[in-house]
Every structure is written in structure tokens, then in C-alpha cells.
Design a protein around this nucleic acid. Structure first.
Lengths: 228, 228
DNA sequence: AAACCTTAAATTGTCGACAATCATGCTTGA
DNA sequence: TCAAGCATGATTGTCGACAATTTAAGGTTT
């Protein structure tokens, strides 16, 4: 029985992969839990074939680990893994910012300035509550990545790594972060890009992500996630 | 009928994925060609089930592209894609070198110096013929990546991206590269790592990969690959 | 009581068959 | 003659069943 709004896709396995991915990121399927093929197949109302295909895809996304003849388990977030992930983000999004500085069209630069103004207004109106921009078109980082013009980079960051990144973002919810500080950093990065200063844009992006990583680490150390 | 030495693995789909991956990288299955499930299933002597799983994995590796109800095609190498891939390599392996500069144990540093001496001796004995180090334990880049101590980075570079990188390496065969120059650059990178100079190690690694990318571009522009 | 072996249940891996979709060639009509 | 539509063949997507392996439980032995 399908308990989610099913976004009709071309193939069942794509649907299932999408829904499973969301369920894991949202924590509906708890970390470290076992993925039972018969159980999930019944739950989603499909046979084990497409379900297995979906699980293989999730393994590629790093959301589950599979061992032969045993099955799949949802990954377990931990500080070391988070630091590793964010080091990669730092390298990749730093490169994205560098590339964006030379390839972002002026129209997109202006659209992004408008977007940051919108974020600013949101913070003013909502007592600094963090702007929820997960995955949407309002996500500053995603816009930079796309502006890099590097198709491989886009795919890697927005399709393969993004699920895990979203998972970390969500499960710590940026409680300790200072949205106004983040916004200032975003503006500085965009300034560098607008001025075609690739080196600076990369440096600022790396510093920005490194700082976010540091805050997330502190948050995890003071939460249940620190138990592993 | 299995026409390759089958390295027995825990599961058929793993075997097939491995063999297919090699066949594509080696060019036995030509670029852009269609992957026929019935045909390959017969060829490898398995049913379509495990074969499909293998294809899904290859899609995750970026070796094939799949479209629903149509099938899978082997990717087609081209200059833009190569440049994109090497930009990512530059960012990621640069980070790996930076991390290795602080985490590589002295024993491994010494082993790598020995390895470079071995490469040097090989060049002396074989009139500068390029040392074949594809994927093996003698691959300098792989050793640096592993020394980064970042498990995510290792997995991404050595499992997910490496197949495509090997494909580019192979199909251009580094004809134009100067092995002695590359060796000098390797030595400079290792020096920086040995001195715990992360900034410098990253800079040198990025320059090294950027240079390789430039050479590969020239090689591709003067070969049949430029036709796309 | 603990460790080991045996056995049964459940889960994963694999297979062959059917349904749905796409590609091809032919017919038909203008 | 050419284009549109149809029919046919082939390929992919999905399913249910069987085989192989792992896990769990129970009984036996030391």
C-alpha cells in the first residue's frame, strides 16, 4: 500500500528510489535500520524487482550499505563521516564558485542579488528564523553550482551527494548557526563572482563551508548523534 | 557463454558489473553503443536480473546513460566532458593532497619516495616509456588519495569516478605527456607532503592535474575523439 | 552453564515468463 | 511520390516462483 503521494514517473524503480530516498533523509526510516525487501515491497505495493533496483541506486547515493546475502542497512550519521563529507563539499563547491566567477551571466548574478535580498527580508520578518531552502530553487548553493557550467560537478553535487548533505542539514537543523552571518558570507561570495574574482570566490566559499562544518560538528557533539 | 576469466565474487551482479566496467574502459564495448540486455545476458550466461542490476551500477559510475523504456548506451568521451571531469579531479585530489600533508605517516612517505625511485629507474631502463600504473598499488595518485584519511573521498575517487578517469587515460594513452616531467611533479608534491605543507601540496597537485588535463585536451583535439 | 552442531525459518539471489513500451517496415491515402 | 498511420517485431519493465545463503532456535554434548 502506497502511503505517500506518488509522483508518477516513467518507471516504478525511479518512483521507489525517490520515495525511499526522501523517507531516509526525513528520518522516517531510521538510521542504521535494516531494509527488508519483502516488507518494503508490500508497503509500496510493488514486486521485489523494481525495489531491488531502487536499493542499488540508493547504495550509489551512499544512503544505504549493502552486503551480499545479508541485505541493506541505512547509513548511520556520525561526526567523522560528516567532516569527510564537508571536506569534499569544500573542495567541490569551492571549485564551483571559482568557475561561476568566470561563467555566470550577468542576468543570473542580478537574480541572485535579488534572491539574497529576499532572504534578508525573510530574516527581518521572522526574527532570524532560518530560511528553509532545502533543494528548492531558492537554495543559494545550488544556484552557484549550476552556474559553474560544469555538468559533471552539477550531477555529482546535486544528485549523488546531495541526499547525504540534506540528511546532515536536517538532522542538526542548523540550530547553532547564525543566519545573518551566513547571509553576509553569501553576499561576499556573490560579490566576488560578480567581480569575476575566481580565486576569491573559491576562498570565500571554502571558508563558508568550513565554518558550517565546524558549527555542525559542535551541534553533533552536543546531541544524540554524538553517541556514535 | 562467459568469454572472460571470471573472478568469482559473492554475487553474479557484482561479477557482471566488474566485467562490464572493464569491457567499457578497455573499449571492447565501443563508446556510444547500445547495451542490449538479452544479448549481454546470453553472452555472460546469466539471466537479465543480475545483468540489469549491473547496468544500474554502471549508470551510477557514469559509464552508461539509461533512458526509460529505451535502454542503456555507453557514454561517449568528448573534450568538454573530459575538462569537466578533470576540474573535479583537480578539486578533489588537491584536497586529498592537502589532507595527506597532515595525516600521512612517515613510513608511508618513505614508501612513496621508494616508489618514485622505482619509477625513475623504470624510465631510465625503458627509454622514457610511460610506466603503466593503472589502478595498481603503484599508482602514485591512488596512494595520495588513500593517505588523505578521508573515507568518502577515497570511495568517490577510487570507486565512482575512477572508471571514467581510467577511460580517458587509456583512450589517449598519454602520448604527448612527458613522463619525466610528471615524475618531477610527483616528487615535488611528495616533498610538500613530507614537510607537512598542506597549502603547497594542494597547489602543486592542482597544477599537476591541470597540466595533465591540458595535454589530454591537445591529444584529443588531434585524434578521432575530437569528432564529437 | 557454555559451546557446538543440527535443523528450520526467513531473507536474499536468480531465473523464466508475461505485460508494457518503443522501434521498424509496410500499407494506405492524398 | 511522400507522409501519415497501422501492424508487427523486438526490447525493456515487472512479476511470481524457485534456489542458495544466512539467521535463529533448539537440542546435544562437554
Amino acid at each position: 500500500m502506497n502511503n505517500l503521494v506518488s509522483i508518477k514517473s516513467a518507471t516504478l524503480s525511479e518512483d521507489i528510489a525517490q520515495q525511499l530516498s526522501n523517507a531516509i533523509v526525513q528520518g522516517e526510516i531510521p538510521q542504521g535500520s535494516k531494509i527488508s525487501e519483502p516488507e518494503l515491497a508490500k508497503q509500496y505495493g510493488v514486486s521485489r524487482g523494481p525495489l531491488r533496483e531502487a536499493i542499488v541506486k540508493l547504495e550509489g547515493l551512499g544512503l544505504v550499505t549493502r552486503t551480499a546475502n545479508v541485505g541493506a542497512r541505512v547509513i548511520q550519521l556520525n561526526i567523522q563521516d560528516m567532516l569527510d563529507t564537508f571536506s569534499m563539499r569544500e573542495a567541490l563547491e569551492g571549485m564551483a564558485a571559482r568557475l561561476a566567477a568566470t561563467s555566470m551571466p550577468l542576468t543570473e548574478v542580478n537574480r541572485l542579488y535579488t534572491l539574497l535580498d529576499k532572504h534578508q527580508a525573510y530574516l527581518d520578518d521572522n526574527q532570524d528564523e532560518h530560511y528553509v531552502q532545502q533543494g528548492g530553487n531558492d537554495d543559494f548553493h545550488l544556484r552557484i553550482i549550476h552556474a559553474s557550467g560544469n555538468a559533471k560537478l552539477v550531477r555529482l553535487l546535486t544528485e549523488e551527494l546531495y541526499a547525504v548533505i540534506r540528511m546532515y542539514r536536517r538532522h542538526t537543523a542548523d540550530q547553532r548557526s547564525d543566519p545573518r552571518q551566513a547571509l553576509r558570507e553569501h553576499r561576499a561570495i556573490l560579490d566576488a563572482i560578480a567581480n569575476h574574482e575566481g580565486d576569491l570566490a573559491e576562498l570565500l566559499m571554502r571558508r563558508h563551508i568550513s565554518r558550517a562544518s565546524h558549527l555542525l560538528k559542535q551541534a553533533m557533539e552536543h546531541s544524540a548523534l554524538a553517541s556514535q
